[in-house]
Structures are given as C-alpha cells and as structure tokens.
C-alpha cells in the first residue's frame, strides 16, 4: 500500500522536474511554427490553431516582406568553430589524457591541478582581458579567435575525462600488445584507443555542445558575419523596442536540431560501457 503511494509521489516529482525542463523547450518549438499574432495574443492561445513555416522562410530571407538574417552564414560559422575546436580539443585531450594516465613526469600532479583549477574560473570573468589581448593580436571577429577561446574552455575537460578512461585500461593490455609485436603507437591504436572510445566520444560531444551553445564570450569577441555564431545571431532579433519572438524561436530550433541529432548519433557510444572481461582482478 505504502509502496505504491511512494511510487506515485516519485512519479509526480519526476513529472514536475521534467515539466520544468521540457515545457520551455516545447514552447520554443511551438512558437517557431506559429504566427506572430497568435504568439502575442492576450489571453494567450495555448494550443496552436495554425502551423506555419513562415518564420523559417522569413529568417532565411525567402519571404518578400522582411529582410532575412544571415542564418546560413551564422550556421557555417558555428559549424566551423565548433567542429574545429571539438576536433582539436579531443585530439589534445587524447594526447594529454594518455600522458597523464600512462607516464610519470615531473610536475604531473601540479599540472593536473592547474588544469582543473582553470575550470573553476568563470569564462566570462576573463572576457575583458581576452578582449584586450585579442584586439591587440587582431583576433577580434575572427573564427580563429573564438576557436582559441573554446579550446581553452574545453581542453581541461577533455583531458580530465579521457585520462579517467585510459586509467581504467590496465597497463598490461598495452604491454601484452607490445610483446605481441606492436610498437607503442600500434598498441595505442589497436588496443587502448578502441577501449577508450566511449570516453573519447563523450568528451567530443561535451566539447561540441559547449562550443555550439556558448554565447557570453562569443558575443564579446564577434562583431559581424565574419565570425558571429548562431547563439550570438539570436540577438539580431532584438531591436530597440521590439523582439521578434517567432523569428528568434525559429532560429533556436535551427540551433537545437543539429545538437540533438549529434547527441543521438553518439549516444550509442556513450551508453556502451567498457566490457572488461580481458583481465582479472
């Protein structure tokens, strides 16, 4: 009796939490497909009466009434910046993580600690110094400038995560491979890398999402279509007195969808844990 009572309480709790998480997202998606009149209506219209793709047409510059926003340009900027910074962060994370997991060297613990401490500093607090330095170096409003900042954000995290995964792989596996005829390099690619793959994939997805969604720093460091990313582009919808809510939501959907797709693709690897049947003890 009490059991089922408790279970319902838990379900109710989960429902509330999920509602808090999901409803705003759902609202954004719904808004993206409604027309402005309906969105602004008082009292609010909860269930959309008419679905439309006009908002997407508008921001893509396909309609006559409204000047388009360079969404494609922003999308490409975002893609280039996120993919480049993710690939580099994962590569460096793999090298760093492997080194921290496998080699003994002077100052290893201190170096690791500093990497972790760098995560405790809120990125935005560095935006002014970064801005000053970047403007001296001519990196303001360039993709490279943003990529560098995202690398700095992501690398400590990828190193930390990947280090943990390499640590779980017994050293004797690599040694066995070396005895079996591999160079250390081959042993890495044939044995250790496949076993750490899920960790590396997790690091990749986190790094990508961080870069893809980051707004605060990008809004300082980008100016024009040369480097503006999608989240920064959202601000184009706010004018001095008005906000184009439907356009903004349509763009938000464009931001969310690739991230969702990527997460679904990689998820298989995230869940597939390591199967350590190879060693005992």
């Amino acid at each position: 009796m009490e059991r089922s009572w408790q279970r319902w309480l838990i379900r109710f709790g989960i429902f509330i939490v999920m509602a808090i998480i999901c409803i705003p997202g759902l609202w954004i998606v719904m808004t993206a497909f409604r027309d402005n009149v309906e969105v602004m209506a008082r009292p609010p219209v909860w269930i959309p009466e008419r679905w439309t793709l006009d908002n997407f047409r508008a921001i893509l510059g396909l309609s006559e009434t409204q000047q388009g926003i360079p969404v494609i340009r922003y999308f490409l900027n975002s893609l280039v910046i996120s993919v480049t910074s993710t690939v580099l962060a994962v590569l460096i994370g793999m090298m760093g993580g492997y080194a921290f997991a496998r080699y003994r060297f002077k100052g290893k613990n201190v170096a690791f600690l500093w990497l972790m401490l760098s995560r405790t500093v809120p990125g935005i607090s560095l935006s002014l110094p970064v801005f000053i330095i970047w403007s001296r170096l001519g990196l303001i409003d360039t993709s490279i400038g943003v990529i560098l900042v995202y690398l700095a954000l992501n690398i400590p995290f990828t190193i930390w995560l990947i280090d943990g995964f390499f640590r779980q792989i017994p050293l004797s596996l690599s040694e066995a491979a070396q005895v079996d005829g591999c160079t250390r390099w081959q042993a890495f690619w044939k044995i250790e890398f496949p076993l750490a793959k899920s960790g590396i994939a997790s690091a990749g997805i986190f790094a990508f999402l961080t870069s893809w969604n980051e707004f605060a720093l990008a809004s300082q460091l980008t100016r024009t279509t040369a480097s503006k990313t999608l989240p920064v582009g959202l601000m184009d919808f706010t004018a001095q007195f008005t906000v184009d809510w439907t356009g903004m939501c349509a763009m938000a959907v464009i931001i969310i969808v690739p991230a969702l797709i990527l997460t679904f693709i990689v998820q298989k690897h995230l869940i597939a844990g390591l199967t350590f049947g190879g060693v005992k003890g």
Binding site: P170, S172, L173, E175, A176, A177, Q178, V179, D180, G181, C182, T183, I191, P194, L195, L274, T275, F276, G277, G278, V279, K280, G281
Partner: peptide
C-alpha cells in the same frame, strides 16, 4: 623493444584484449 625479442608473456591478470 619487446616486439624484437621473439618472446611471449602470460600476465598474471591474463591481459586478454576485451574487445
């Protein structure tokens, strides 16, 4: 290096490749 010695080794924890 180990690979050039034409030896083989059985480890205490077996060290089989799990994948």
């Amino acid at each position: 290096p180990p690979r050039a010695r034409n030896i083989s080794m059985v480890f205490q924890n077996y060290a089989l490749y799990p994948h």
